[in-house]
Design a binder for these strands. Structure first.
Lengths: 127, 127
DNA sequence: CTGGACCTTCCCCTGCAGGGGAAGGTCAAC
DNA sequence: GTTGACCTTCCCCTGCAGGGGAAGGTCCAG
């Protein structure tokens, strides 16, 4: 299968697939005489796995770890569990930070300032 | 006041201040004969304003809009209100997305898979 | 008059995940 | 045999907010 077919089959782009090749995530199984990448059908699952990982917010480095582990012949499920747990922790923290930021802005916003009394010198009382 | 003093007074770096100068956020009021940036004391308030804006998650572009408005002589409070409201909306959306992502990962994580039954071919049942 | 601290511009680098486009090779159909 | 779709590598660009460091100029104290 050539790169364009794989891109079509997985709903991504040839640019992305070349990038994944360079990043060591999905290599073509062979190259044609003219140097064209030739992928086997497993590549479809592999790309889809990467895309699923991306949609749950994993970085390519994290996905690569999983794939590398799998490529040793091991079932990477335990590692995936740990990665997902890390991701949950990171998400909790991001959510907490954004929520705190929201409260900060809300309280700024509630400081019922009379716009008419704003002085340009102070730049803005709201901030 | 030279750039190093301003950096010390505002707790930032000369690199950042030069960047803000180039970005049109805080210009020195004059340049010395040797080309040194010379800031007046208003610059301190201005830099602090930028830093406050940054801590509530505004981009430099948003902050610049506010400062540009202020520089026309207008009190930018109404614009700041709108900017903060936009920021709240953006935050709400980010929080919602992250929360949804968390739930997705949680449900993946709860799929009580027996690791021992994982097949390398499927890459990983968890994802 | 010299040393060290400070300043200048200039250019590249960071992280992350690719995108844009050029210059050139290849393949299949007509 | 040529047209058009596809492929290759190569290099730079994106957004965001600066950071690193080089090469050179300046200012002030001792």
């Amino acid at each position: 299968m050539r790169i364009g077919e794989l891109a079509a089959a997985t709903g991504t782009t040839t640019k992305t697939l070349r990038f994944y090749d360079a990043a060591g995530l999905v290599h073509p199984s062979t190259r044609s005489g003219a140097g064209y990448r030739d992928y086997d059908t497993h590549a479809i699952d592999r790309v889809r796995f990467i895309l699923r990982g991306r949609t749950v917010g994993l970085t390519l480095a994290q996905i690569r770890e999983i794939l590398d582990l799998r490529d040793t012949g091991a079932a990477p499920c335990d590692h995936v569990q740990r990665t997902l747990d890390q991701q949950l922790t990171a998400l909790e923290q991001q959510i907490a930070e954004l929520t705190a930021l929201r409260e900060t802005i809300n309280s700024l916003r509630r400081r019922n300032v009379e716009s008419s009394t704003c002085q340009p010198e102070t730049i803005c009382r709201y901030l």
